[in-house]
Design a binder for these strands. Structure first.
Lengths: 354, 354
DNA sequence: TAAGAAATGAGGAACGTACCTCAAAAATTG
DNA sequence: CAATTTTTGAGGTACGTTCCTCATTTCTTA
């Protein structure tokens, strides 16, 4: 009736507890025949190791590290908060997360940080970084030392990272493209694409997906070359202003990255708010506000809370060398419009010990 | 350096371990002054109770029950699988889930089932059922006995259920409405609404949300009275056929419930596939296929995996009387189009004991 | 201030697993 | 077959908490 324990296995298999323990924990000195006898008993009884007890006995505690670029990106900021929150909850199951920020302008700082992590101290690393050669090497070396690493938000496919926690940027761009195309049904004209910088893998892939869809399925829409703002509101005003002046038949705006506040301010000044179909990425206080006000028609987003929790779950699984639940870790490309905007996250996080 | 334990609290507060235990577990016989002394020590040390150890000591095991209506609804089927899968994972943390189905035509069977659950045996119940008077009474009685209950998929607001795991149907209907309106930009005409039955709370609320949006924001579209199919493909063919014959200017179809396969077959027969904007609910093998084929333009969905895991987490939290993480339990109203369709779930679930 | 009640302390057993040591048994080798 | 190696058994301690008992101290109140 109750759950079988290691003692039950021993009895069932006709061996001692010590032998069961050797088999369960893959310790040496057991004959193949005995091993299979124990495993048979395990399957016969339907034994499932009590992870709580196991971790308690091991007095295992996991120190994880999350590395995010420094700067004032709203998305990174939100993700940092989500990580902190997820870590607070995971603290009850002996996981500690240190959240570090690195200067995005110098990858050597990050590389040195990574090089300093030792397997005795660090049970896993979640990293959000572009895949430069320096980083690639540092990640490879880290994994060589036996420290699991998951790429967070932006993939590092050529580093052998253990897992990627995030959404497929290309598919996200395609999704944005379809929405742009469909929301512009019956219209013909040009679509402006605005990015911080086209050096980031994410931006490139989104743009590629977006273009694909518009080219194939919405011939009435014409996608213009990307306007790069480098995070500057002035540059955005200038670039978009010039472009609108030169091409009067703009019907849609696609923001690959940030700049929603600057764009809204600019459009408001010109009396153009609501004139275009506007689609952007990531749900931040700014995009949320723009959605509510109706200046922004849709946002393609990944849920920072899910991102954070998934990263911690995967890292723990990797540290324990147990398989991950693919279904649970598959993050959705969310389409957010005003009508399915989730309620504002509340601020009062009361971690109560009682 | 290491995590503080109950012994550390005792030392810090200058009391005995027994007293700390009394405070932590809200046992009687401690002066208010002592309680606050202990709590101060707890906050000073940043103590977080080790849940693994706590549950081990309690040798608490949770037997939860999930109750779903019987029948061949694809969504319920998928949800049942998700629950089984989530339960398999939760087994490692001493949770057992019994999944029961009840005949949807007789609520007294369900009511009797609920009446039979005793708090000594059942740590929590997840229930998907319409809110009839019989059920309302049974749920109230259950909670009176101290058994936590969460409403699954469809809310039971007047029963005092501990929590609702699911999405807001009204908002889901509004979301469907906006997509219908925007995907029909430039068109004017009628929109057909097809439902299994309008007796279900969900259908009513979706319909209400849908109507609201179309009425307020898309005056060019005219919503027709609901066609009820009662789950029968024939009835669907007849009703939709009659309606299309009578009103030639139909531009959109909205499926409140199931019937995607029957609708696709009907439209194919008539050579009408792809002629209308079609929007439906829930991601099932049928809607997935229809999305891929392009017969269905968007699906408003809730993620069955999230639903299942959220239900188990909430029930466990309720059983432990600890607060739930609102952020994590807030389920999103997903908008699924072909471009953000998640990869087909794989079948090979390998639960490995080693 | 003495009797009674309330609060606190001391100690131990238990939960299921990990990990250790030492001795005994079994298998393998020369 | 004896010597050696390998495998197995027996038993203990530890992890951090819960929950119990019984003794002792401290506070109330008549």
């Amino acid at each position: 009736m109750t759950r079988p324990t290691v003692n039950d296995i021993a009895r069932e298999a006709g061996v001692s507890l010590a032998t069961v323990d050797r088999v369960l924990n893959a310790r040496p000195g057991v004959r193949a025949k005995t091993i299979s006898a124990v495993n048979d008993a395990i399957t016969r009884l339907g034994y499932v190791r009590d992870l709580a007890a196991a971790n308690l006995a091991r007095s295992r505690s996991y120190r994880m590290i999350a590395l995010l670029p420094d700067g004032d990106s709203q998305f990174v900021q939100t993700l940092a908060e989500a990580l902190t929150e997820a870590a607070a909850l995971a603290a009850a199951t002996r996981l500690r997360l240190d959240l570090l920020r690195y200067p995005p302008e110098d990858m050597h700082v990050l590389s040195n940080l990574l090089a300093g992590f030792q397997p005795e101290e660090v049970a896993g690393v979640a990293l959000m970084a572009p895949e430069t050669p320096v980083i690639r090497d540092a990640v490879r070396a880290l994994r060589q030392r036996g420290i699991p690493l998951v790429a967070l938000g932006s993939d590092l496919p050529n580093t052998g990272r253990d897992h990627f926690v995030g959404i497929d940027s290309h598919a996200a761009g395609r999704t944005a493209g379809v929405l742009m195309g469909r929301f512009c049904r019956g219209l013909s004209g040009r679509v402006l694409v605005i990015a911080d910088s086209m050096l980031l893998r994410d931006s490139i892939e989104r743009r590629r997906g977006f273009d694909e869809v518009l080219l194939a399925d919405f011939p009435a829409l014409d996608v213009m070359p990307t306007l790069e703002t480098h995070g500057s509101a002035d540059q955005l005003r200038r670039a978009v202003g010039d472009c609108l002046a030169a091409t009067p038949d703009v019907v849609g705006l696609y923001l690959l990255g940030s700049g929603h506040r600057a764009l809204a301010a600019f459009l408001r000044d010109r009396g153009l708010l609501g004139r275009f179909v506007v689609i952007g990425h990531e749900l931040t206080p700014h995009t949320r506000q723009a959605l509510m006000a109706g200046h922004l028609d849709a946002v393609i987003a990944q849920n920072p809370g899910h991102l954070a929790r998934s990263a911690l779950r995967v890292l723990r699984a990797k540290a324990d060398r147990i398989p991950i639940d693919e279904g649970q870790e598959q993050l959705r490309i969310e389409v957010v419009i005003r009508e399915n905007l989730p309620a504002e996250p509340r601020e009062d996080q009361q971690g109560d010990a009682a």
